[in-house]
Amino acid sequence: MKGILLVNLGSPESPEPQDVKKYLGEFLMDERVIDVPLWARNLLVKGIILNTRPKASAAAYKKIWWKEGSPLIVLSERLKTKVQKQTESPVALAMRYGSMTIKKGLQELVDKGVDEVLLFPLYPQFAMATTETILVLAEAIQKEHFPNITLESVPAFYNKPDYIDVLSQSITKHLEGVQFEHLLFSYHGVPERHIRKRDITKSHCKIDGKCCSTPSKAHEFCYRHQCLEVTRLVAEKLQLKSGSYSTSFQSRLGFDPWLQPYTDRTIERLGKKGIKNMAIVTPAFVSDCLETLEEIAMEGQEIFHEMGGKQFTTIPCLNDDEEWVLLLSKWINKWSKTNVLSS
């Protein structure tokens, strides 16, 4: 019997500092998030970050926390519920970090008689700190606790035409009646070294402005290329004029070079340039979360207004949008019937 495990990032149990500290500890100690030797990661995370950041992060979570709980969890659960209504195979939901573990999600499916699992990381683009860490952990859990089930995973779907259609429709819907001079595509940032580490050619990814637009096998695991490709494909779909849109990267940490241009500085630059009305979309996320609701919708808007901007329109993630639900369900149903993933 086949079943599907949707996996998202995760969330603290509450916006209180002690729960945020616990969550950050698990998240930041992941060797694929902060990919430095264990001694250095311990020093950075346990010695510095967990003694300074939880209080500020908790304050940020409190700004966006819903009565039902964490927005990311609530929205992911809504998505799972809607998808389950469109599919015959059992669907479970898990998080990479926090109490909604992958092990619990797999156990839920096994208890329903599932022995073939489609692991569906809810990330359009591949990255070490998102898709890869989910796949590696899920495989380890399967081998140790569920040796009688098989796992198959959904590859990055950033360039699938039907995904681009759904994303473009969502952007169009939320910009209806909105006058904007610039549309910013903001993606979660990663250190530049992550890009080079996952270059399967060991030579292509130079992050020089040309490599991401030059065909290469490296693009299969290149987060930067995949982000730029989403922007390009959506811009073509929406017939955006050159200069009316751009790409940036948010949420950097530490002092190492991260993917640029940075979102906060891009918003600042656009405001200084005289742009009065801008819109921003965050296609690295399928569910709204701290990084979209607080960092972009609140902090980003504040920066824009400080620079003289007037209207700052944030476009929601796909969340449980009906077209997104139908697309996910179509992909799942195709796999359930044919063992073929979306093409």
Rank of each mutant, 00 (worst) to 15 (best):
H194M: 05
I73G: 06
T247A: 15
L38F: 13
C222N: 07
L326H: 09
T150V: 13
L175S: 02
S342F: 15
A92Q: 00
T231Q: 15
G300S: 08
D111W: 05
I64E: 07
T130K: 01
Y187A: 00
G243Q: 02
S329I: 00
G105Y: 00
N159T: 14
I4H: 01
S213L: 13
L175A: 04
S170V: 00
E291N: 06
T282W: 04
I73W: 08
E302C: 10
L167V: 05
Y123F: 15
E144S: 08
Q86I: 00
H204N: 14
R265T: 08
N148I: 00
P316F: 10
H194L: 00
L183P: 00
V83F: 03
V114H: 02
G177Q: 04
E192S: 05
R232L: 07
Y245D: 12
F249K: 02
T101L: 01
T292S: 09
T214E: 13
T292P: 04
T282K: 03
T282C: 14
G25Y: 06
T247C: 08
G47S: 01
L9E: 06
L253A: 09
N339D: 12
T131N: 12
T81V: 08
S99F: 06
H305D: 04
P15Y: 00
E139S: 07
E229L: 14
L72D: 03
R32C: 10
G177Y: 04
N148L: 08
D30I: 15
G243I: 11
M29D: 14
Y61I: 08
K310V: 06
K330L: 04
G309Y: 05
L75M: 11
I195Q: 05
E16Y: 04
S246P: 13
D199S: 05
L293E: 09
K103I: 01
E295S: 14
P215C: 12
L38I: 15
T282D: 07
Q260K: 09
V190P: 00
S251F: 04
D162C: 08
P283S: 10
V340A: 10
E77V: 12
F185V: 05
V281E: 04
E26T: 14
P215G: 11
I4F: 10
K273H: 15
P121T: 14
R53E: 09
D35N: 14
F304M: 13
V20H: 05
W65F: 08
R41F: 04
L233T: 13
V166D: 11
I200H: 05
Q169I: 05
T282I: 14
E176H: 13
I134A: 03
I134M: 01
I332K: 02
P71E: 15
Q142M: 07
K55H: 10
N42S: 12
I195N: 01
K276V: 03
A297T: 10
T338S: 12
E26D: 15
G3I: 03
A156T: 14
I34V: 15
S99E: 12
T150E: 08
T172A: 15
D320T: 03
S203E: 15
C205R: 10
K104T: 06
K272Q: 14
R32E: 08
L318N: 03
E31T: 14
T172N: 11
G3F: 02
A59Q: 13
L137A: 09
